[in-house]
């Protein structure tokens, strides 16, 4: 009897579960902004390369960067890295496309006008040759491993991994993505490798929430305007000079973060580095007095609708130390 039940149960499963297990990913997802709020919301602090295993070349290129670069006429609408959705505070839309036989031909991660659509081919097509054109969203293939869709992206273009501070990615970067949906939550882990700019893989894991009421993120237009009139038709490119980037020491001055951590050395990614700092790190007094235990986050909308929940630290000493002149919470 038990055996018969098992057989029937198995037969039912065989009918309802595709040969390669998979999950429905279609939908519009919102980023959960309390995760890495600073990066996804207001953006990185100046000169903040923490968490990035940069090569010397990557660090050097990032230090040539000024935020005027993406403001240049030529770069305003240039697509960012395929993996930038891990940092962008915008809606992400996922849909699938079918072949004439009704089989899933591709999953598409779209919905962002500053990131090329990531079209994940599921039909086993070969990867293009090294001669093939690189495209904004890269070339992607996917396979299901249980309920996780694993994707590999190649043929991307040179693009900032984090535009706010100019963390570079090359045109030979590769990204492995794992997409796992549980109920309304979609976890995406990206593992980015770069032969020129990263000493080891850059791993980010973020959660997105299905939201049927969200605007679907279908905006597809980007327009250019002359934001820096003095550059018009000059051919000039804004940049800092080596050793003269005024933002290089910002994290040190503001948060007492050791420079090697701020500048993105791989060692600082690991728990052992926290142990190394444990007895030598001193938080800046202005911040520590106001928010013991949680130091110096730039919580832009603290206490206001849309603000990150349960974070009480406010200006991080900007009023005294930073160039933006933000007011203390007590002054409001």
């Amino acid at each position: 009897m038990n055996r018969r039940v098992a057989i029937v149960f198995g037969a039912v499963l065989a009918v309802v579960t595709p040969a390669a297990a998979q999950t429905e990913l279609t939908g519009t997802y919102l980023p959960l902004m309390h995760e890495d709020y600073i990066e996804r919301g207001p953006g990185s602090f100046l000169g903040d390369f923490t968490g990035m295993p940069l090569t010397d070349e990557g660090r050097a290129k990032a230090l040539l960067y000024t935020s005027n670069q993406p403001s240049t006429y030529e770069r305003q609408c240039v697509a960012q890295s395929p993996g930038v959705f891990q940092y962008r505070p915008v809606v992400m839309r996922i849909w699938k496309e079918f072949d004439p036989e009704g089989r899933v031909l591709a999953w598409v991660i779209g919905g962002d006008y500053l990131r090329g659509d990531i079209r994940i081919w599921m039909d086993g097509r070969p990867r293009p040759s090294v001669n093939a054109q690189h495209v904004d969203g890269g070339f992607s293939t996917g396979v299901w491993a249980g309920d996780t869709l694993t994707v590999r992206v190649t043929h991307a273009k040179t693009a900032w991994i984090r535009r706010g501070v100019g963390i570079p990615g090359s045109d030979f970067t590769t990204i492995t993505m794992h997409l796992t949906r549980r109920a309304d939550l979609l976890t995406i882990t990206t593992i980015q490798e770069d032969p020129y700019y990263l000493t080891e893989p850059h791993v980010v894991s973020r959660v997105f929430q299905l939201n049927p009421r969200a605007t679907d993120g279908t905006r597809q237009a980007c327009n250019t305007a002359n934001e820096i009139p003095t550059l018009e038709d000059t051919g000039d490119v804004p940049h800092y000079f080596p050793g003269r980037n005024p933002e290089e020491d910002f994290m040190v001055r503001t948060f007492n973060v050791p420079k090697e951590a701020a500048m993105g050395y791989a060692e600082t990614l690991y728990p052992e580095y926290r142990k190394k700092l444990k007895d030598v790190y001193a938080p800046p007094a202005a911040c520590w007095d106001r928010a013991p235990g949680y130091c110096c986050g730039w919580i832009e909308r603290q206490g206001l609708p849309g603000g990150a929940p349960n974070l009480t630290c406010n200006d991080g000493g900007f009023a005294e130390l930073g160039p933006r002149g933000r007011r203390r919470a007590t002054d409001r």
Binding site: T55, D56, E57, P126, R127, V130, T141, V143, A145, T150, R152, T154, H155, F172, T174, E193, D194, P195, Y196, L198, T199, E200
Partner: peptide, 23 residues
């Protein structure tokens, strides 16, 4: 096997081995 399934092996120019900042 997974790497082969994803076509990784035919994209060796894209794969950084040896890392540590040298190519």
């Amino acid at each position: 096997a997974f790497a082969a399934a994803l076509g990784v092996l035919d994209t060796l120019p894209y794969v950084a081995s040896g890392f540590k900042g040298t190519l």
